[in-house]
Nucleic acid binder design. Sequence first.
DNA 1: ATAGGCTCTGTTTTT
DNA 2: CAGAGCCTAT
Length: 649
Amino acid sequence: MAVSSGLTNFAQALNAEQLAAVTAPDGPLFVLAAAGTGKTRTLVYRVAYLVQQGVDARRILLLTFTNRAAREMLARAQILVGEQVGGLWGGTFHHLANRMLRRYAPLLNFGADFTILDHDDSISLIKDLITELKLGGKQFPKAEVLLSLLSGAVNRRQALDAAVQRYFEKHPIDPEDALRVFARYQQKKRAQNAMDFDDLIINGLQLLKEHPGVLAHYQEQFRYVLVDEYQDTNPIQADWVDLLAQRHRNLLVVGDDFQSIYAWRGADYRNIMTFPQRYADTRIFKLETNYRSTPEILAVANRCIAGNPHQFQKVLRATRPAHHKPVLVSVADGAHQARYVIGQLVYLRNAGRAWRDMVVLYRAHYHALELQMELTRARIPFTVVSGVRFFEQAHVKDVLSLLRILHNPGDELAFARFLSLLPGVSSRTAAKVWRSLGGRWTAGNAKARSAVAGLLPKAARAVWQTLLPIFETYESLLRKEPAEIIAQFSKIFYDEYLLDTFDDYERRQEDLAEVMEFMAGFASTDDFLNEVALVTNLDAEGDRLAGNAQDSLRLSTVHQAKGLEWNVVFVLWLADGLFPSSRAMLESGEDAEERRLFYVAVTRAKDELFLCAPAMRRALNGGIQFLEPSRFVKELPPDCLRQEKTDFL
DNA sequence: ATAGGCTCTGTTTTT
DNA sequence: CAGAGCCTAT
């Protein structure tokens, strides 16, 4: 139900800085929002404000960093002004691109039912191509390397041949070979009617640039464009935004250059730095009043970021009363660190904190393995915001491959994956079958079904026959009850396959139950398949965590903690080389982004912050490596922190 | 096609 | 040291 109480409502809920931004008149707006200053709140209220002013929600575009963020903001805006917010377009760039391309892909000579290749799919495709082009061999770069090279060039809008030249300077192989792989990769994707993550963005932009009618349509539709986390957009995404907002120029970007942590993925903080120049009539709003953290935590945050080059000057102003200083914990090694953290967790929990009020953050997933074991032993419930994405796990992809071949008869990757599940069928056999079928297979066609049977080795053929009931009946199920297809498949074949193949068979089965549940949230199987590649852990995680609000400790990388907050924050492995990561510094030649990452970690904390600095770790070869405390800790004035030197147990 | 042994490599962040 | 990926023998 709509609440119509005019502006007073907003004035009560917002501070002066926020209110000014929320109620600003039309035109380009730039909200520079430091951590914990109510950035999300401002966006939510802006949406609510617009709707209350009579703007049709369908004419508002809200671009966010995760789909979950969009959903959350939408839900919050709905509480403010009611159902009318429902028609708003919200989500990630990939999500928006997908939505546009589903409609207009034919203009780019793709079918509208194109498949989205996730990271794994892209890798296996490139692997196949390396083999096909006979380029294997141990000095030839791995598919992983090639893909990240390609993606890096694409997202930074660098010429591919130059990027390849540069990369292979130190390699004894011919850069032309890499370019051949890339060329073939593009061809293959087209032939399979497939796009990878980067293609979505690139093709989406191409669609707008080359088809004035389409561009005009969306420019007209989106009277208001709001962009969250603008500091993490890459040049292509920035173009998207500029193009879409060109007509109405009601563009609101929100961000914080201090929190730009995706340069490695092509994000360019210059987008945010130069925004006021690119839009000369921009109104600038600075949010600096922090409601989240204690003054002691903010002091650390302000100090750590102060020396970073090229940034908008801003200082977090505290509103909360003094509490105690963040703790710098010197520990001997990983084991000691785990024991210390667990000791503190238990203490804080006994003092009244819930597990969910606390988080352990780290630079890289493997930094937390040791702690995970100790937490298990201590019977502390925890949830890892995992490195392996839920929908990229082998068993999930196996099952989805069935839906994919039923849905898209040209989906070679899915077909090969599915067939390889059968006994005695490897990727080679699968490829051969696919070729004999002429690169297309329709499950609903009886001839096609027996053609496959004829091409399979004996053992596989027997299993294939047992699967026929699924292929004979899927068509109505696909529309009405796609989960039932998975259930049948499990019963006939896949349960047993799981049991034979994996030792953690039960967990995987539970995952599949979750997949079925998740599917129920989509209007159709098409929608589900068309978007599942874009669903991130966090998207799914948020739902799951919200659903059964079990109380558990969260473990997360700093990257995945972006935008979130906890009462108590532990940061692990603050040692030079680990955090900041030496690899990252080697790649970029500087430590500015790592420092921003540290800043993000620090500013997640509301009440208490523990910075753990181990003195040594097990080295790569089994020996011991001594560590220097992280430069980010050493740079801080000593009186910012309470030093805790624990006994080396 | 697959199992098992051997060698090499080397721990980043993710839409 | 561990895990991945390659090679070889069946």
